[in-house]
């Protein structure tokens, strides 16, 4: 059966090209849809009007206001240090677990790997409220400390999976070779396994940072009134009524997280180099 465009001369290549062009336009529209709100947000942070009124009038006054907004600054500070602490703890103990799961075969290993999926797939709403119930009940209570506990738990499965993927890319021979050359297990780990795993570990750390820094749901349920983190502050600001300072800080937040994820994408070869 001949293609309708497989006729004579010019028209032969025309139809596929039109289809191709339409496909590209469609993709471009999707990208516009994905980026318009982000662009609007960034622009509105520089708009004079409180009510985001148009036409646009350039001003940096909301960034100046942000510099004097004690609440938002404290919340930002809390967010950053919790994300950092989360990154250190989750990356460390997650890498240890990933190493054991990748290197040893033992009973319960499959179960342990399967246990990583409920924390990722159960909606955060349910996990967050469950943490609230349990922490309240056991006296751990709410606040930055329980927030950190929760963030680490959420980051751990991602760290174990990302480092585990790197782990799967090399066999036990490297460590065996090190042992045969006289290295103790600890020396073999520090000098061989760890450097080889490093790109995976850095990618996992970036991911863990982003999970915590962008985490709203868990933080929302676990934050105590008064000591808050940035997403929770932004939420209450939105609920109370807009202030462009929130735009300003939101823009910063979004660029920080996108920057981190860009680094993650580079490191984990996410999307591949095909």
């Amino acid at each position: 059966m001949a293609q309708p465009w497989e006729g004579e001369g010019m028209s032969r290549h025309l139809l596929p090209r039109i289809a191709d062009g339409m496909g590209r336009i469609f993709l471009a529209l999707i990208l516009v849809f994905l980026y318009v709100p982000i662009a609007v947000l960034a622009l509105m942070g520089f708009n004079e009007s409180v009510h985001y009124a148009l036409p646009f009038e350039f001003s940096t006054k909301w960034y100046e206001a942000l510099a004097g907004n004690e609440r938002l600054l404290t919340a930002s500070f809390n967010s950053v240090w919790i994300a950092l602490a989360n990154t250190v703890v989750a990356t460390t103990i997650g890498t240890m677990a990933a190493f054991a799961l990748g290197r040893f075969r033992f009973r319960g290993r499959t179960v342990m790997q399967l246990l990583l999926f409920p924390p990722i797939t159960i909606p955060w709403l349910i996990i967050g409220t469950a943490m609230l119930v349990f922490f309240f009940w056991t006296g751990i209570g709410r606040g930055l400390h329980s927030l950190l506990l929760g963030h680490i738990a959420l980051s751990l499965p991602y760290v174990i999976i990302v480092v585990g993927a790197r782990m799967a890319s090399f066999g036990p021979e490297l460590e065996e070779a090190a042992a045969s050359l006289g290295a103790t297990p600890l020396q073999a780990f520090w000098r061989i396994s760890l450097p080889v795993l490093m790109p995976g570990i850095i990618a996992a750390a970036l991911f863990a940072f982003a999970v915590s820094f962008d985490q709203f749901v868990i933080s929302y349920f676990l934050a105590a009134p008064g000591t808050s983190v940035l997403p929770v502050e932004i939420f209450s600001a939105i609920r109370k009524g807009f202030t462009p300072e929130v735009n300003a800080i939101s823009t910063l937040v979004i660029f920080v997280s996108m920057g981190i994820m860009l680094a993650f994408a580079r490191l984990s070869k996410f999307g591949g180099e095909r």
């Binding site: 937040v253 997280s257 994408a265």
Partner: peptide, 25 residues
Amino acid sequence: EALFLLVVLPFWSNALVRIFSWTVV
């Protein structure tokens, strides 16, 4: 590769903030 990254990038940004930007739009 570049377009692929562009597509998934917003996805890794703060979900709350993205919803907030829609309220503005």
